[in-house]
Amino acid sequence: MTTRIDARFAELKRQGRSAFVTFVMAGDPDAKTALEVIKALPKAGADIIELGMPFTDPMADGPSIQAAGLRALKGGMTLKKTLELVRDFRKDDDSTPIVLMGYYNPIYIYGVDAFLADAKAAGVDGLIIVDLPPEEDTELCIPAMKAGLNFIRLATPTTDDKRLPAVLANTSGFVYYVAVTGITGAAAADSKVVGAAVGRIKQHTKLPVCVGFGIRTPEAARAIAENADGSVVGTALVDALKGSLDAEGRATARTVTAVADLASALAQGVRGAKQAAE
């Protein structure tokens, strides 16, 4: 099975560069604006789009992404509408991979089988579910693999060599290395330490390793890109979006460009990186 994610990493390998992965929240601050934002991201240089599924209780997220989720929920976002957003995006873009990222409860309530069928049909390529460690693989990971979706696992600084094989066993698409112990938007990652960690993970897998948490600037993105197969930026983009909203939290004429401009600068940072040593 080759997914859009596999195809994208194969293409980047031919181009000899690292991936720029963007995270935005579905429905932030409303569904229509969010569609325009995600349509603008590939043009700004995003190679992969992570789309947050809003949840009331995001226990691994910092204040920025918590607030983004609450703005989306206030704007009437649901999991069903998140899948509609992906379907609308796919009308014009059949190659940029979309990874849904969030928490398990809304999927569990939607119904795992129905969700996987609807997500696949909408054009979703992968899932990152923060509160499903390998110990709970039977819940969603195994069914997702059977449905043809990549299940992308988080590896963290606390995932030691003994545990890594279990974490990687059912992972596909890429491995998401969480560069710091903490919540999204927290401390910056030291690129040297991250490089060593990526090297450690690569001893256990042939999958691409993308790094996220704590990357906010083009310089930081470049430093990470030199040591990994991709850099993920989320909180900085979400903050840029928030900064463009009016006093009532509604989108303005600047909202889409605010996100796209930052994405563009970050993409240039990533593209300026020397190719990571194989």
Binding site: D131, P133, T159, G182
Partner: peptide
């Protein structure tokens, strides 16, 4: 029941 937590916490 179960263990529905982020990977960072799982080893602990």
């Amino acid at each position: 029941g179960g263990r529905f937590v982020a990977e960072t916490l799982m080893p602990l």
